[in-house]
Amino acid sequence: MSTVQTKDGVEIFYKDWGPKDAQPIMFHHGWPLSSDDWDAQMLFFVQNGYRVVAHDRRGHGRSAQVSDGHDMDHYAADAFAVVEALDLRNAVHIGHSTGGGEVARYVARHGGPTGRVAKAVLVSAVPPLMLKTDANPEGLPMEVFDGFRKGTAENRAQTFLDVAAGPFYGFNREGAKVYQGVVQNWWRQGMMGSAKAHYDGIKAFSETDQTEDLKAISVPTLVMHGDDDQIVPIADAALKSIKLLKNGTLKVYKGFPHGMLTTHADVINPDLLAFIRA
């Protein structure tokens, strides 16, 4: 397996497909998944001549199941370890859900005059802040995230099955076509990872205020969100993020769910390609 070691000694698994001299696209996955969640995008873009890279976040997929470091700072640093090892330049960074938070932190810290970051894409992403606070009254109450913690701690296998079969892909909506293979693949990816990483990661994706990260991003940034996202409600995510970005473009997809990269790859992939080529 292809891995890099971070500065704090964590083995991070990654995939690297396509011509080494082509423009790189790096994909950052959501909770509690792995780089496998990007199959539909990686195949599409490698077939369009790009170099595609995706890694498993620490504690997820095939990366080391370490006890600590399950926070946005370490997530961004781990991504940078992969970028440095592969010497990726002029890259487009695309993040989904928690991976969108990872991209925001990564680009804010490493997207300056280094030439490493060309553009960014936040898909169904968690920034600026998911948790309801006095300053963020539109957020979700702590009880929602405590429910995720309880499910992860007490019966992770069933919780992951329920999330995938229900709100993640909108399979709980009336008339929705349910793909059992998609549900099973979500569950498979989740169960490959560490319960500790998944438990700690709930705090990372729900309580990290990324307002300043978004303000610091200067590269062209595409914000994509479905207006029927039951996991990361659009009103508290994309509609706020676009107001904080210096160079942002918002694309809203009517009726699309949180997992639209999988359920609607035929729509999302061409839109991603058009943004990257622009």
Rank of each mutant, 00 (worst) to 15 (best):
V10T: 13
W31A: 00
L214C: 12
S63D: 06
V46W: 00
G9K: 14
D209M: 00
A235D: 15
G139Q: 08
T208A: 07
L214P: 13
I231G: 02
V107N: 11
A54M: 09
D8Q: 13
D21F: 05
G95H: 02
E84D: 15
K215Y: 04
R156N: 04
V53R: 03
L250F: 09
V121F: 07
L239M: 15
G112P: 01
V232C: 15
L140H: 06
A157C: 01
K7L: 12
D68W: 12
G95N: 03
S206P: 02
G101T: 02
A197H: 05
E11G: 07
M191N: 12
Q189C: 12
D271A: 13
G166F: 13
F145A: 05
T221A: 01
V107Y: 10
I234K: 09
A216I: 08
A135S: 15
V178S: 04
M142D: 07
V82A: 06
L261P: 06
G166N: 14
L272E: 10
T159H: 09
Q65S: 10
V163T: 03
K243W: 00
F80L: 02
Y169R: 05
T221W: 05
V52C: 06
K251P: 05
F275G: 12
F168K: 05
A120Y: 14
A118D: 11
V66N: 08
L86A: 07
P233S: 13
I268L: 14
K254F: 11
H93A: 02
M192T: 10
G115Q: 07
K132E: 14
G115P: 12
G226N: 04
M260Q: 10
E84W: 09
T6D: 08
S124G: 15
E143F: 11
E138P: 09
F205M: 09
L129C: 04
K119D: 08
R105F: 01
R58M: 07
G248D: 05
